[in-house]
Amino acid sequence: MNPAIAGSARRLTLTLAAALLCACTTLMPVQEGTKLVGQPKAAVQATFGPPTDIFNLPDGTSRWIYSKQPLGQYAYAAEFDRNGNLTSFRNVLSSLELYKAQVGTWTREDVAEHFGVTRLPVEYYPRMRREVWSYRFLHEDVWPSLFNFYFDDAGILRQTQITPDPLYDPDERRR
C-alpha cells in the first residue's frame, strides 16, 4: 500500500476513534464519570474539561459542577474526597436531587454548592421580597421544566416551584 494513503488512513482512523470517544463522553456523561470513581481530579478534567463551578466544602471534600445551563437541562456534580479522588458523578438537575433542597434551612450558598450557580437571569419580585434562581431540567425525566428557588432578603430558601419551561412552549416561541 502507498505510504501516503496508509498514513492518511491511520490519521482518519485515529480521528474517528477520538470523535467516538468524545461522543460517548458527551452523550453518556454519568456512565463515563462513574467509570472514573477512584481516579484523581486530573483524570476527571482530562475527560470532561474544566468545571463551570468549583466548591471546596467545609468537611475537606470538594465538588465540581459541569453545568449545561442556561439552555441545557443537566448539571453534573463530580464529588471528590479529601485526597482529591472522585467518589461520585451524577446529574444534580433531576427531580430526586432537586427535591433535596430544604425550605427554611438552605441558603443561596447551599443551592449553588449543590446545583451550581444559576446561569439563567436572577429575578426579584419586590412585593414578595423574593429573589428567584431558576434551573432548566426534565421533570420526572420527561417534561421540560424550570425549578425555581425563592430566597428571602437574608438569602434563606423560602419556597420552591416547578413551572413549564417557556423555551419549549410553542405558543411562547411565536412571541
Rank of each mutant, 00 (worst) to 15 (best):
residue 22 C to E: 06
residue 31 Q to V: 10
residue 66 Y to A: 01
residue 84 G to I: 11
residue 56 N to K: 08
residue 37 V to S: 02
residue 36 L to S: 00
residue 51 P to A: 09
residue 24 C to I: 07
residue 69 Q to S: 10
residue 64 W to D: 01
residue 63 R to Q: 01
residue 60 G to W: 11
residue 85 N to F: 09
residue 65 I to P: 05
residue 68 K to L: 15
residue 31 Q to F: 12
residue 78 A to M: 02
residue 24 C to N: 13
residue 63 R to Y: 00
residue 66 Y to L: 08
residue 72 G to I: 12
residue 59 D to L: 15
residue 73 Q to I: 12
residue 22 C to V: 14
residue 68 K to W: 14
residue 55 F to G: 00
residue 37 V to C: 09
residue 83 N to M: 12
residue 64 W to L: 05
residue 80 F to I: 05
residue 70 P to S: 14
residue 53 D to I: 00
residue 82 R to I: 07
residue 82 R to Y: 06
residue 58 P to I: 10
residue 47 T to G: 05
residue 64 W to P: 03
residue 34 T to S: 10
residue 59 D to M: 13
residue 42 A to F: 05
residue 64 W to V: 00
residue 54 I to N: 09
residue 44 V to S: 01
residue 32 E to G: 11
residue 57 L to F: 06
residue 65 I to D: 03
residue 29 P to S: 07
residue 86 L to T: 02
residue 51 P to Q: 08
residue 39 Q to C: 01
residue 27 L to M: 12
residue 26 T to F: 15
residue 83 N to L: 13
residue 68 K to S: 15
residue 83 N to G: 10
residue 30 V to G: 12
residue 51 P to S: 12
residue 26 T to Q: 14
residue 67 S to W: 02
residue 80 F to T: 01
residue 84 G to M: 09
residue 37 V to N: 11
residue 61 T to F: 07
residue 41 K to A: 01
residue 76 Y to T: 07
residue 43 A to H: 02
residue 48 F to S: 03
residue 29 P to Q: 04
residue 76 Y to H: 14
residue 81 D to K: 06
residue 57 L to Y: 07
residue 65 I to M: 13
residue 74 Y to W: 15
residue 73 Q to T: 15
residue 53 D to P: 06
residue 35 K to S: 07
residue 39 Q to P: 01
residue 76 Y to A: 04
residue 31 Q to A: 15
residue 41 K to N: 01
residue 61 T to R: 06
residue 26 T to D: 09
residue 35 K to T: 07
residue 71 L to I: 15
residue 80 F to D: 02
residue 32 E to F: 06
residue 62 S to R: 11
residue 63 R to E: 05
residue 25 T to I: 10
residue 84 G to F: 06
residue 75 A to Y: 04
residue 56 N to R: 11
residue 60 G to K: 08
residue 41 K to H: 05
residue 43 A to W: 01
residue 42 A to N: 06
residue 62 S to E: 09
residue 40 P to H: 02
residue 24 C to Q: 11
residue 52 T to N: 13
residue 75 A to G: 08
residue 78 A to D: 03
residue 31 Q to D: 13
residue 42 A to E: 05
residue 53 D to Y: 02
residue 31 Q to N: 14
residue 79 E to Y: 07
residue 66 Y to V: 14
residue 77 A to D: 05
residue 85 N to M: 07
residue 32 E to L: 05
residue 39 Q to V: 00
residue 58 P to Y: 10
residue 39 Q to K: 11
residue 69 Q to R: 14
residue 57 L to M: 15
residue 55 F to D: 03
residue 59 D to C: 11
residue 58 P to W: 13
residue 77 A to N: 05
residue 77 A to C: 11
residue 85 N to H: 12
residue 52 T to F: 02
residue 85 N to Y: 13
residue 65 I to L: 15
residue 80 F to P: 00
residue 48 F to W: 11
residue 32 E to A: 10
residue 67 S to Q: 07
residue 76 Y to W: 15
residue 45 Q to R: 06
residue 85 N to R: 13
